[in-house]
Design a binder for these strands. Structure first.
Length: 422
RNA sequence: GGUAGGGUACCGAAGUGGCCAAACGGGGCAGACUGUAAAUCUGCUGGCGAACGCCUUCCUUGGUUCGAAUCCAAGCCCUACCA
């Protein structure tokens, strides 16, 4: 099975710039994919790109992860309906460190290995580029008709918000990245999500015009769940790979909650599990969907990959406690470990004891306002140590605190909050 | 630079002197049902308050008026077409 077949079978293939790519991949190629440095942590939404690179590296190709330090300063208009906030150079620098750490969970950067991955930052070659350089050396290879015809441009021009010159030029920069990597590393393939098609072809065309050589582009589909929502967000919040931003527990839970209709596809995309194993799990979903066996495997595989065995153990233990409902028997120290990454707040004893529960919830910041906290209680959505709070006047007492200093609050079914009292 | 249109809550969008904390839709939150699902149904969704209610909002700043999201003036921003 060659790598393109693997991509096809794992829903990682959408399109390629030329059928010649199949033959080119018979020999080791140098491949790159870009990542936005919008945060100091990658997100679940980046998994597809990461997995595609990982498959390529495992197949013996040399992979380059490009962090868009320069392009991040501009903002990619693809798939965005509005102009983005621009990042500061220092911010990008900080984000780079985190991103490298995240990638190292999936890609081998070790200099000792036979085929180490490379991390580059396009700010390094753009920082000294002047506007005149760009116009003379790069801009003249770009034709207006083509640029205006790009989907990302057309869509934005049709929208009410229009598009700035800055964003319009984005494709030139990304196109130049490919050219630079071709010259520097002999990079001959760029991969990306299908929204990157226009930016990728900008690069393949630039290389062809300047060097007369053919380089390739390949895209994979944007992953959506079966209800059409873009993969990687939970309640509007991105799922980060950094445990400080998304706890082990939340990370694990995000995948555990995958819909039946999506879980088999996700296993193919996001894990390296062999197809036989995935077929078994598919049968298991059909036979007993309520067991969510496939979801558990998916959550385990990804949590282990990103957070290691220890992170997985914590996530599972937290899951057991939170859904088993047995909070009483636990020591405060145990609770703190399990809820280490759950939102928390520390209040003084006189802010808590004897006060109505909703006021404590508001004071702790679990709800945005007292009104919201009141609503939560009135609707029966607040739980203290897994026991539903009945009635708005319910006050907080000493007996609600584990060892006099901790209480586990829950809003709704799955939103936990750790209240600490000093 | 000209002409026209526009800026309302998380988003979209009504409202064009009092009945407006502001219709409706989406989103979000909560509940019921469930498999920690999906689908469906119900309630809530500016702040404070148990509640009558009170307070702060409709781009900004001034003004007219008993009363302004709504009228006037200036400014800022956006969009389209023209230059």
């Amino acid at each position: 099975m060659n790598i393109l077949d693997t991509f096809q079978a794992r829903h990682l293939f959408e399109d390629m710039t030329s059928p010649g790519l199949a033959k080119a991949l018979d020999k080791p190629l140098t491949v790159y994919a870009g990542f936005d440095p919008t945060s100091d942590s990658l997100q679940a939404g980046n998994f597809v790109t990461i997995m595609a690179l990982a498959h390529l590296q495992r197949a013996g190709h040399r992979v380059i992860a490009l962090v868009g330090g320069a392009t991040g300063l501009i903002g990619d208009p693809s798939g965005k309906s509005k102009e983005r906030n621009l990042l500061s150079a220092e911010q990008v620098e900080r984000n780079l460190v985190g991103i490298r750490e995240n990638l190292s969970r999936f890609l081998d950067f070790s200099p000792d290995s036979a085929n180490p991955a490379i991390l580059v930052n396009n700010y390094d070659w753009f920082k000294d580029f002047t506007f005149i350089d760009l116009l003379r050396d790069v801009g003249r290879y770009f034709r207006m008709g083509v640029m205006l015809g790009k989907d990302s441009v057309k869509k934005r021009m049709e929208s009410d918000d229009g598009m700035s010159f800055t964003e319009f030029c984005y494709q030139i920069l990304q196109g130049y990245d490919f050219y630079h990597l071709y010259k520097t590393y002999g990079c001959a393939l760029q991969i990306g999500g299908s929204d990157q098609w226009g930016n990728i072809t900008a690069g393949t065309e630039l290389v062809r015009r300047i060097c007369g050589e053919e380089v390739y582009g390949m895209t994979f589909p944007l992953v959506c769940d079966s209800t059409g929502k873009k993969f990687g967000k939970s309640e509007g919040n991105a799922i980060f790979l950094d445990a400080r931003k998304t706890s082990y527990y939340d990370f694990y839970q995000f995948f555990l909650r995958t819909l039946d209709a999506d879980v088999i596809r996700y296993l193919k995309i996001f894990t390296f599990l062999p197809f036989e194993r995935i077929a078994e799990l598919e049968a298991a979903v059909m036979a007993a969907p309520e067991k969510r066996e496939a979801q558990q495997v998916l959550a385990e595989e990804l949590t282990r990959a990103v957070h290691g065995e220890s992170g997985l153990a914590i996530a599972r233990k937290a899951t057991g406690v939170l859904f088993g409902g047995a909070i009483e028997g636990l020591a405060a120290a145990e609770l703190e470990a399990i809820f280490a990454n759950v939102p928390s707040a520390t209040l003084s004893a006189d802010q808590v004891l004897g006060k109505p529960a909703f006021e404590v919830v508001a004071a702790a910041g679990m709800a945005a306002s007292k009104g919201e906290a009141r609503r939560l209680v009135q609707q029966g959505g607040l739980y203290i140590n897994n026991a539903r709070v009945m009635g708005i006047e319910r006050a907080f007492g000493a007996s609600d605190l584990c060892e006099g200093r901790l209480a586990v609050l829950r809003g709704g079914k799955k939103s936990f909050f750790l209240l600490k009292v000093r």
